[in-house]
């Protein structure tokens, strides 16, 4: 009888472990809404925060909610394996900074915008697509779709599609041209320049 009880306990423990591995804690939609809340926050306080303040506020959310190593690998596609570990890490780090700087630069004012979650669709391999809209009183809504990927019990954003345009595909095409024509080091130089420009072009607080 005792042996049976132990085996049931084992079964439940194994089941729970397996279940938690398959079904990440929290909802994918909560991750997207957390990002949206952070974006609204920096938009509403855009001026007092300035570029650096927006960058610092968004950094923890973007760092923890985007699976940047996976994104980096997909963006560099077949070039990824040609890089050594140090170069790969350099690219991941730089790409992280570029993503944060891009958000900090683009979400630099507030005119009554809001985000609305529309629906969640299941994709293969346990991934999900969270469909949302950025609603602006002055212009047409922008459809923002987030491709969500479960990894080690958490949901991560791996791609953002704005009105049908996938930022990741654009970068993949562009970076391939730069690496092909000018080499990896040149791409790194270009990205560093971009990050610098994004900071410079934003009004200071």
């Amino acid at each position: 009888m005792r042996a049976l009880t132990i085996s049931i306990k084992h079964f439940i423990a194994v089941f729970l472990l397996f279940y938690s591995a398959c079904s990440p804690a929290g909802e994918a939609v909560a991750v997207v809404e957390e990002l949206h809340a952070a974006l609204l926050n920096v938009m509403q306080q855009a001026e007092p925060l300035g570029f650096q303040g927006r960058y610092d506020t968004l950094a923890p959310v973007i760092q923890s909610r985007f699976d940047t190593p996976l994104i980096a690998k997909v963006i560099l596609s077949r070039y990824w394996d040609e890089l050594d570990e140090q170069q790969q890490n350099r690219f991941i780090e730089l790409f992280k900074r570029l993503s944060i700087a891009t958000y900090a630069s683009r979400f630099d004012d507030y005119s009554g915008e809001s985000f609305k979650t529309i629906s969640v669709e299941e994709l293969k391999k346990g991934r999900q697509l969270v469909k949302t809209e950025l609603i602006s009183p002055k212009s047409k809504p922008v459809r923002l779709e987030y491709l969500m990927h479960p990894n080690e019990g958490n949901w991560y954003i791996i791609s953002v599609i704005a009105d049908g345009v996938n930022d990741l595909s654009l970068k993949r095409a562009e970076y391939a041209v730069i690496i092909n024509d000018k080499g990896f080091d040149n791409l790194i130089g270009e990205l560093e320049k971009k990050i610098q420009e994004l900071g410079d072009s934003s009004p200071k607080s």
Binding site: G164, V165, L170, Y175, V177, I178, E190
Partner: peptide
Amino acid sequence: EAAVDPYSFTREAYLQRRQYL
């Protein structure tokens, strides 16, 4: 502001937008 190779950027954005439409 975003593009490192504006030609490929424009091409990809245009073609994806076409599919969307």
